[in-house]
């Protein structure tokens, strides 16, 4: 590609009014919060940052955030995107969001893995529509619920159903100061051990997805004596066959394992591959 010389017309010097030194503040980064197919829980996490909310609102320009009543045309320094892509209009809209965003961060299981609505990926949408809706023709839906990264480049993915507010703040702060976010991708087991929880699998024989699930919730369920439901999706190197073998040995049949893995992160690649393999073995109902 050749670059043509650009001839600029002579411009008359116009004196620029200068603000007094102390009033000239650097432009605040503009932040937009977008919703796709989702329950709003993740973006409400931002409003849930009660103690820090005013300080965050003071540090950034919240330019587009319908839940809080802001909207502008952009462009934006940081777009936080909630929800998955489930219809044609959203498929086009995410491309526009990407085009007007310097940085795009997905927040939550829907935006990162397709969400609970990705259960449709394992069935026939036309069939659901005909059963559920009086006028299926009025419903416009794609056959699959897909994560944002299936459509546009994503700069960072924050996990969780919903996300944790401390991690959301950390990612926003890291963005503001141009540093790496302090978010780890190891298992929920590591959070249980840091917290001092007694392992619910070893001490109570409970089914717990902690060993294959991404940290970030602070081991919320095991802290209340419940097994992990896998809300944060697969950890950095999940060994699903070993996990499934362990669950089987503790009395969970393959059908129950499939139901356990097919929830908020059903379409996360490692979880999906594991459940499909179980179903293809033909031993369990879909």
């Amino acid at each position: 590609m050749t670059r043509e010389a650009v001839v600029t017309p002579p411009v008359r010097e116009v004196p620029v009014p200068r603000l007094p030194e102390r009033q000239r503040a650097p432009r605040k980064p503009s932040v937009a919060v977008w919703k796709f197919s989702s329950c709003d829980g993740c973006q409400l996490t931002l409003l849930d940052c009660e103690d820090e909310l005013l300080a965050v609102a003071g540090a950034v320009e919240l330019s587009y955030f319908l839940e809080a009543g802001f909207s502008s045309d952009g462009p934006y320094d940081l777009s936080l995107v909630e929800g998955s892509v489930t219809n044609e209009a959203d498929r086009r809209r995410i491309e526009r969001v990407r085009a007007v965003s310097k940085h795009l961060v997905t927040i939550g299981a829907c935006a990162t893995a397709g969400g609970i609505q990705a259960l449709r990926n394992f069935g026939d949408v036309e069939e659901f529509l005909s059963i559920v809706y009086a006028s299926p023709r009025l419903v416009e839906a794609l056959g699959e619920s897909t994560p944002i990264s299936a459509h546009v480049p994503v700069d960072y993915e924050l996990r969780g159903c919903p996300i944790t507010r401390a991690q959301l703040l950390e990612v926003v702060l890291a963005f503001l100061h141009g540093r790496r976010a302090d978010v780890v991708a190891s298992s929920v087991c590591s959070e249980c051990k840091l917290t001092g929880n007694v392992c619910v699998t070893v001490a109570d024989g409970m089914a717990c997805l902690g060993p294959v699930t991404h940290a970030g919730c602070g081991a919320l369920c095991p802290s209340y004596k419940r097994g992990c439901y896998g809300c944060f999706g697969p950890m950095e190197s999940p060994n699903l066959p070993a996990m499934i073998g362990g669950l089987n040995r503790r009395g969970l049949d393959d059908g129950s394992v499939v139901r356990l893995l097919r929830s908020f992160n059903a379409a996360a690649p490692q979880f999906q591959a594991a459940t499909q393999a179980l179903i293809e073995m033909g031993e369990c109902p879909t």
């Binding site: 190891s186 298992s187 087991c189 590591s190 051990k193 840091l194 392992c199 902690g210 060993p211 294959v212 190197s237 999940p238 060994n239 066959p241 070993a242 996990m243 073998g245 362990g246």
Partner: peptide
């Protein structure tokens, strides 16, 4: 390795 979950439990206990 086929059985290990890589979950970190052994090291943290």
């Amino acid at each position: 390795a086929s059985r290990c979950l890589g979950c970190t439990s052994c090291t943290l206990v």
